[in-house]
């Protein structure tokens, strides 16, 4: 139920309230439009992310299978030792795009080259394949990370916008309308009271 705001019932407040009501209604419409657009964009991206994740998970399973093959053929300590000093330098550059006031990251992944940085004597050959598969998968993983971050940011923004829309729709606008109505009634009442008082005074004056 709408609540009457705690304001002085005068014409100045009424005028202020009416102005803020107009702004609230306009804001509500804009936020509602933003929410709809965000939801639409979110659904499109969520579907893309879902597909991308499925593809990557399949490829990742293959990578791990290759890695397991390497792990099965040697002492686990030997495999760990082989990968102890990774000298590869992997860089990811990030720029942010603004989609409906949501900061969405865009990662650019410069082309990486497979560099041999471990000894051949104590490492199995299948490790080369597993590591290369991981390296091939890395740009996709980074892309998935960016897309998932975007979807997560959008979900947060939708949630935030939805709260604002609800607050305007169910609290601020009804409260303002009720307060305007209440102030108008009080002002009308005061006007009627003044008028009747004046009429009584006029009658008294006439009687004398």
């Amino acid at each position: 139920m709408a609540k009457i705001l705690n304001v002085n019932p005068n014409r100045m407040e009424l005028s202020k309230l009416k102005k803020s009501l107009i702004v609230a209604k306009r804001g509500h419409k804009l936020l509602k439009d933003k929410q709809d657009a965000l939801v639409k964009e979110f659904l499109i991206r969520a579907r893309v992310v879902y597909q991308l994740r499925q593809e990557i998970e399949e490829e990742l399973a293959l990578c791990y299978a290759g890695f397991l093959l390497a792990r099965a053929q040697t002492l686990p300590q030997m495999l760990e030792q082989t990968l102890m000093c990774a000298s590869g330098d992997m860089r990811v550059e990030v720029v942010f795009a603004n989609i409906m006031s949501v900061r969405v990251p865009r990662f650019t992944f410069p082309e990486q080259h497979v560099e041999l940085n471990y000894g051949l004597g104590t490492s199995p050959g299948s490790l080369d394949v597993a590591l290369e598969q991981f390296l091939t998968l890395m740009p996709k993983l980074v892309e998935l990370a960016a897309e998932e971050k975007a979807v997560k940011s959008m979900a947060l923004e939708i949630e935030k916008t939805r709260r604002r829309v609800n607050a305007l729709e169910h609290v601020m606008i009804p409260n303002s309308i009720e307060t305007v109505r209440s102030i108008s009634m009080k002002l009308d009442e005061a006007e009627r009271s003044t008028l009747s008082r004046l009429m009584v005074i006029k009658d008294i004056v006439r009687a004398h």
Partner: peptide, 11 residues
């Protein structure tokens, strides 16, 4: 910082 060369020598 060439680990490969170190490993090559050891192998």
């Amino acid at each position: 910082r060439d680990v490969l060369e170190v490993e090559r020598l050891l192998d």
